[in-house]
Amino acid sequence: MGTTLTGQFETRREAEMTVERLVQEYGVDRASILIAAAGNENSAGEEQAGSDRAAGSPTPESRDDAALHGSIVVTVDLSDEELAGKVRAAFVEFEAFDVEQD
C-alpha cells in the first residue's frame, strides 16, 4: 500500500534542498515528487533565500521582485514505508511545516 507525504516550506531553497536529498541520497524517483506554490499565485516562498538573495561582490544591482506569495508545497508519492520515514526526516531537516501523510 502506498503513502503520500506533503510538507510546506517557507523558501524555494528549502523545498529544492529537500527534493535533492530525496533523489540523490534516498533514491526517490523525481517523477514521484510534485513541487507547487501553496496558493493560486506563482511563489518563490515566503522569504528570500538562495538565488533570490543578493550575491556577494561583484554583483548586479539588488532586486526586490521575488514572487513572495506564500509557501512552497512538496508532495511525495511512495510505495515503501521505510522510505517514508526518510522523507519525513528530510522534511524535518529542511524545516517543513504542516506535514501531512495520506
Results as ranks from 00 to 15, higher is better:
residue 62 S to D: 01
residue 72 I to F: 02
residue 7 G to C: 01
residue 71 S to W: 06
residue 46 E to L: 15
residue 75 T to L: 06
residue 8 Q to A: 07
residue 24 Q to P: 06
residue 2 G to R: 13
residue 35 I to G: 04
residue 79 S to P: 06
residue 24 Q to W: 11
residue 79 S to N: 10
residue 102 D to A: 14
residue 35 I to R: 15
residue 46 E to I: 14
residue 93 E to I: 10
residue 80 D to S: 01
residue 70 G to F: 00
residue 91 F to D: 08
residue 82 E to K: 03
residue 28 V to K: 00
residue 65 D to K: 03
residue 24 Q to M: 14
residue 42 N to L: 09
residue 19 V to D: 04
residue 42 N to T: 01
residue 39 G to R: 00
residue 81 E to R: 05
residue 82 E to D: 14
residue 66 A to P: 01
residue 23 V to R: 00
residue 27 G to P: 14
residue 88 R to K: 07
residue 9 F to A: 04
residue 42 N to S: 10
residue 46 E to N: 11
residue 19 V to Y: 06
residue 60 P to M: 06
residue 6 T to N: 12
residue 30 R to V: 11
residue 98 D to W: 05
residue 38 A to H: 02
residue 59 T to F: 12
residue 84 A to T: 05
residue 10 E to Y: 01
residue 3 T to P: 02
residue 83 L to R: 10
residue 26 Y to V: 08
residue 84 A to Y: 11
residue 45 G to E: 07
residue 42 N to H: 09
residue 66 A to G: 03
residue 31 A to E: 08
residue 97 F to V: 14
residue 97 F to Y: 15
residue 41 E to G: 04
residue 11 T to N: 11
residue 23 V to N: 03
residue 74 V to T: 10
residue 63 R to W: 04
residue 99 V to T: 15
residue 15 A to P: 02
residue 55 A to K: 15
residue 99 V to R: 02
residue 59 T to S: 15
residue 13 R to G: 00
residue 77 D to G: 14
residue 13 R to Q: 10
residue 93 E to M: 06
residue 81 E to S: 13
residue 20 E to V: 14
residue 87 V to Q: 06
residue 39 G to S: 13
residue 90 A to W: 12
residue 90 A to E: 13
residue 102 D to G: 15
residue 43 S to M: 00
residue 14 E to M: 10
residue 13 R to M: 15
